[in-house]
Each structure stands twice: as C-alpha cells, then as structure tokens.
Design a protein around this nucleic acid. Structure first.
Lengths: 228, 228
DNA sequence: TCTATAGTTCGATATGCATCGAAGCATTGA
DNA sequence: TCAATGCTTCGATGCATATCGAACTATAGA
C-alpha cells in the first residue's frame, strides 16, 4: 500500500542526478558523457547514477553504436520535475550546446555510412511529408510510394534486400537529436550524392561539403524546404 | 544555479518523512506525536525530521500550548506530492489498479483542502458541461455563468480574491488520472459539503464519507450524473 | 589489423544521516 | 508546589551511498 514516493524522491534527491534530469528537461536525448559533464562528475559516477535512474524508470536509454542516449521516460516525469522547479521557484536550466561546434559538421556530415546533420533532418522531414517513409518512433518504414520513388531513382531493392542490414532505419542525430535516415537506403542516398558530385567528403573530418549546384539539385530531388 | 530540487527531493526521499507528508495530505494539522506514530519512528527521530521539513519550508508549524501542529506549507507542496503519487503508481504496478486500493478512498477523499476521487471527477465533468468552468489543459478557468452560479450559492469572491492562491485550479487526480477542481473554489466546495453535513471526514484516513441524503443533495446541486 | 573513444565494473574510501537512549526544557493541570 | 505529558538536544552507532582510480569491454574510424 505504501506508495514509495520516497524511493523516487531519493532518486531525485542527489545533486548530480537532479542536474542530469534538469539537463534532460530540454527534451533532447543526451549521452552519458554529456550528462557526466552536466552533473560535474566523472564518467564512472555518472554511469552509476544513470543506471539507477533507468532502473527507477525515470529515464529510458537508446543504445546507438558506442553512444547511449538518455531521455526522460514519460511526460509525467517531466511534469514532476517541472512541479519541483515550481516549488523551488528555480527556473534556470542552463542549455547545453550539444554535439559538434564546427558549423560544417553541424550542416552535413557522414554518420557511419549515411548522411547526418541539419541537411539529413531536412531530408527526413521531406521524405515523411511526401509519404515515402513513416516515422513510428523507434522504427521507420518505407511505404509503397516511397519504394516506387526510389526505384525510379535507380535503387535496386533486390540487391539491398540481400544485405543483412535493414533497408530503412532511423538513427538519432548527434547534433540535431532528431531521427535521420540510416540503413542501406540511407547509405544509397549518400553514395548517390557523391556519385552525382553534388558534394565531396572532407579529407580530415567527417564533414560533407555540398557545392551550390549540388545543394540545389539535392533539394529539388527530395523536395527539401528551408535549405540555407 | 544550485539545483534546489535536489534539496527538496532529498527531504521527500526519506521513508519516514514521506509517510509524514502523505499523512498531512488529508489537510488536517497533526501533532509531532501523531506524525511520529504515522511514520513509525520515535519522538526524537520525528522531531529531527519535522525540524528539517519546517526548515525546508515544506511544512509550517503552529505552537498551541504544549502541542505543535504541523501542516503542509502551501497548496503547491500538496500538488507536488500528488504528482509524486501519480508517478509512483505509474511505475510500481503498471498492470494493476492505480492509486489507493481502499474503495472508500477511491470514491471520495480529501486532497489537501479540496475533494478528490471519483466524485470529484463527476463534479468536474458536471461543472464543465454546465459551462461553469472551462478546462484548458493545464489551466482551468471560471466562466461568468460559473461565477454567477457560485455567487448564488453563497461564495464570497471578494474574499477569495484576497487570498494569494488562484480561485480556480486543476489538480491531477491520483486514482482517476483526470483533473479535478482545486484552488480556493475547490476548497469552498469541500467546506460547503462539510458545513451542510452531507459528508464527514474520516478520522484515521483521508476518506470522505457521504451519507445517502448528502450524496443526493450534492448530485442535485451540481447536476452530477452517474452517481453510484 | 590498430588506436581512440564511450561506457561499465570493481574495490576502497569517506561522508552523510537516520536512528534511538538518555537527559533536558516547557507546558498543563491538580 | 508537584507530577505528567509533549517535544527537543546531545551523543553514539551503524548503515547506505556518492565518489573516484584502475582496469575492463565494445564500438568507430583509419
């Protein structure tokens, strides 16, 4: 019968953990290292705290490559923290600058074998609004119209299907903290960009540099708006 | 800067203290000895806890003779605890029934200083359907017709306006997961129910027990349907 | 392959704090 | 005045846990 509000409160009651949770109030997923910096503790300590928060179901975690992205578990957790902030009348959450500082990297870069950065978000949104893909939260699905579209662009789906990896996959973007397109289709799109010489890969960093003609052509092909 | 939410949460994070605070959710002021019994600790331990809670401004204390009466400091403290109960019931038994198991508590109980439970939900819906209040998600507003109605029932709005707390406020119900009416108007309604002897407050729990005449009169006054 | 980075586990340390016994105030009622 | 009750302070004890160094696994990128 005893609803253990004490247990939940104790989780919130540690300064390092509360700093992490407040940092996550922005809604963006943050990595363990970022949260360690935010809480001003070492990675080991942060790992221990994060394990407790996940175990206490205050956070959910998505593993992606060698990163772990943490987010508040549900909206009511955010509401609880909001209420706490309200009671303490402490309304300053210092916004953390996430991801790379290099503007070129923020704009477009390679993520393993597909496109990441602002342009990849624009691409993703455009594909969704055209009805080519469906965002289902943790999963992304290619629709029939999407399949037709990419087939017309020269994608050989039989060949893609042979590879073990999924054709269509969402990937949490490092700088934007939004889903972008991964999978073998994401790979095809990036290779297609290079093949058409719309962009070149930077030799020293992961940045992808579009030329002006290429950027326009890219935007036209996928009907991407708000290209700066 | 320093997240005071950790300080407040740590206060709530001790089992003995959280038991005391939940006991005070009934809205009644309790003495140190009563709270010690409630928390199942000795008088010395309770004294230490209560000093911390008063110092942290979660409680206020009134000395009366050789007794000390403790109460929740403000309504937002009660709301914080309600939200905590809400979150813990989401987490602990996601499959089972949420909130209190006691059917009397589910039916009607005191939430700090206003009515909670099934009947409060029925009241809220009735007020909305009559156009007396407007539910705006996070806010609840009293309409002009609502103001006229309650004025006719004897509510002194000039007096209510003097208090710092809002007249009309929504409060998320622990067992029902729906908004019910809080604020000074919610307080007036509960006091009105007691004044008209439609219900009595249980001495040991937060339950509010309506007698059959009172329940009918209550339903008639506010035009509440589906009273079981 | 190899190197750098992300994150975890383990062990040791230290600190905080809840708890209660005993003693001390404070107030009431006789 | 005295005894009874309500509450607090002090001191000792013991447990929980936050912290970090060092060593470990896993992944990315070259």
């Amino acid at each position: 019968m005893e609803p253990n509000i004490a247990f939940i409160s104790a989780l919130l009651g540690d300064p390092a953990r509360s700093r992490m949770l407040i940092a996550l109030m922005g809604g963006k997923a943050l990595t363990a290292t970022e949260l360690a910096l935010e809480a001003d503790v070492t990675a080991q300590t942060a790992s221990s705290h994060l394990a407790k928060l996940v175990n206490g179901e205050l956070l959910i975690v998505r593993k992606q490559g060698r990163h772990k992205y943490f987010q508040l578990h549900r909206a009511d957790i955010a509401q609880l923290i909001e209420q706490l902030l309200n009671v303490t009348s402490n309304i300053n959450h210092p916004a953390t600058i996430t991801g790379p500082t290099d503007p070129n990297l923020r704009k477009a870069r390679v993520c393993y074998d597909h496109l990441a950065g602002e342009l990849s978000i624009g691409l993703y949104d455009a594909l969704v609004s055209k009805g080519f893909i469906i965002d289902q939260g943790f999963e992304t699905k290619l629709t029939n119209t999407g399949r037709s579209f990419f087939h017309a662009q020269g994608v050989n789906f039989d060949k893609l299907a042979k590879a073990r990896r999924p054709v269509c996959k969402s990937c949490l973007d490092w700088s934007e903290r939004r889903s972008h397109l991964a999978g073998s289709l994401g790979h095809w799109i990036l290779e297609d960009i290079f093949a058409k010489k719309w962009a070149v890969r930077d030799l020293t960093s992961r940045a992808v540099s579009f030329n002006s003609k290429g950027l326009n052509a890219f935007a036209r092909m996928y009907n991407i708006k708000n290209i700066i």
